[in-house]
Amino acid sequence: MKYAGKKLLSMLATLLGVSFLVFFAFDVIPGDPALAQLGTNATPERLEALREEMGLNAPFFQRYFQWIAAFFTGDFGTSYSYHIPVGDMILEKLPISVFMTLMAFVMVLVISIPLGILSAKHEGGKLDTVICTVNQVLMSVPPFFSGMLITLLFGIVLRWFTPGGFVSLEQDAGAFFGYLFFPALAIALPKAAMAVKMLRSSLVTELGKDYPRTAYSRGNTKNQVLRNHVLKNALIPVLTFFGMALTDILTGSIIVEQVFGIPGLGRILLTSIMNRDYPVVEAIIMFMAIIVIVVNFLVDLLYRRLDPQINME
């Protein structure tokens, strides 16, 4: 538990550092938010009044602490372009991105673990070669292109779904998940390929160690050695990768949303970047960073559960 506390503190420190970087970065960029809100033909007096009202004249650190304090109370500021609270904008779109990310992540796990084991079991054989080759090709396809190919194949040729025909969760939950399946697959495929490769090489490394030989000498079959001895050890290094995959999928969803015309977080982020709507950009980036940091924290804890050697010290 001491370890968890230590990690929790370090996680909070990282979060604080990240928030500072984000705030600092958006503070130093040229451009005046007040000007952006009023337009170029505003009078200097009105501009100055708005600056005062928005708290832009306060010292840097005061503004930073105000921002971070507001952030923790759920006040993420107001969008420049839509003049509505940023929090509402994000909350509305969050479920789409979260569901898509989780679906893709589950696909990565479901595809990669059995295939990785199969590939390692037949190391050097025909099946292994086929899996490795397919892997290498899949890893080379950028997710937005695999998204286009999936649209082409399942949407246009096979007509399993209607490209661009996104249905929101409230309208029809079934159709919502049905539609998200294909974009999730597009993000999951390259990640799953990478995961198969990592798991395979980790398994092969473990199989080459001394303790599987001990296991064989007691009369275990290859399947038993893989399942009871090697898998747990091999998963430890791959765990970090799964953590990273989860966060990569989350950011990858920004792009894939674009391919499939899904109005999720990515869509708002991109339009906000184009419109220089900084409060929205800041908030979304902070959101994603928080998710990434929390996932890393959880991976660390899981790591410790799996590996008795770290528990020792």
Partner: peptide
């Protein structure tokens, strides 16, 4: 038949 090995450090499974 059973066997014991030179390296007791690595011949045991670290996670069991």
């Amino acid at each position: 038949i059973s066997m014991i090995f030179q390296e007791p450090m690595t011949s045991l499974n670290p996670t069991r």
